[in-house]
C-alpha cells in the first residue's frame, strides 16, 4: 500500500465509529496491539516532549526507508502513536516531508482532544518530520 492508501484506510476505519467513545475504544485496541518498545529503548532521547503521558519513538533506517516503533504509558496515546507508526513506518524521508498530515484533520482527532492532548499530537507529528529531515 502507498502512503495515500494507508491514510485513506485509517480514515475509513475511523469513520465506522460514530460515537467518540467507540472511536476511543478503537484507539485503545490499536494501542493494545502495538508491540511497543523494550524497556531499554524507553530512553530520554526517544521521549517526545510536550505530551502529558510519556511517548517514546524509535527510528531506524532500512534501505532508505524509515522504520518507526513507539510506545506510551497511556493506552489512548499508544493508539494515536500506533496509528501514526502504521501510516508512516516504511516511508522514505522524502515522502514524509512532502506529506501535509492532513488526513489527521479528516479524523477530527485534533478537535476532539483536549488542548494539551492536541499539543501532544502536534509534538508527535513534529518529531516524525524531524526524524525525516535528519535522515533525508
Amino acid at each position: 500500500m502507498t502512503l495515500k492508501e494507508r491514510q485513506e484506510q485509517v480514515v475509513e476505519d475511523f469513520a465506522i465509529y460514530e460515537d467518540w467513545l467507540d472511536k476511543y475504544e478503537y484507539l485503545i485496541e490499536l494501542g493494545k496491539s502495538l508491540c511497543g518498545l523494550p524497556e531499554g529503548k524507553k530512553t530520554e532521547d526517544r521521549l517526545i516532549k510536550g505530551c502529558q503521558s510519556r511517548v517514546w519513538l524509535d527510528t531506524e533506517k532500512n534501505g532508505g526507508r524509515l522504520v518507526f516503533s513507539a510506545d506510551s504509558d497511556a493506552l489512548i496515546t499508544r493508539g494515536i502513536i500506533s496509528l501514526l507508526v502504521n501510516v508512516y513506518s516504511g516511508c522514505t524521508p522524502q515522502e514524509i516531508l512532502e506529506d501535509d498530515f492532513s488526513f489527521l484533520d479528516t479524523l477530527g482527532l485534533k478537535e476532539n482532544l483536549s488542548p494539551t492532548r492536541a499539543g501532544g499530537l502536534a509534538s508527535m507529528i513534529e518529531t516524525i518530520r524531524k526524524k525525516a529531515q535528519e535522515n533525508g
Partner: peptide, 13 residues
Amino acid sequence: AHHEDLALILDKM
C-alpha cells in the same frame, strides 16, 4: 490504567 486515558474516556461520558 493511565489517569489520562481514564480522564479522556470519562470526558466523553
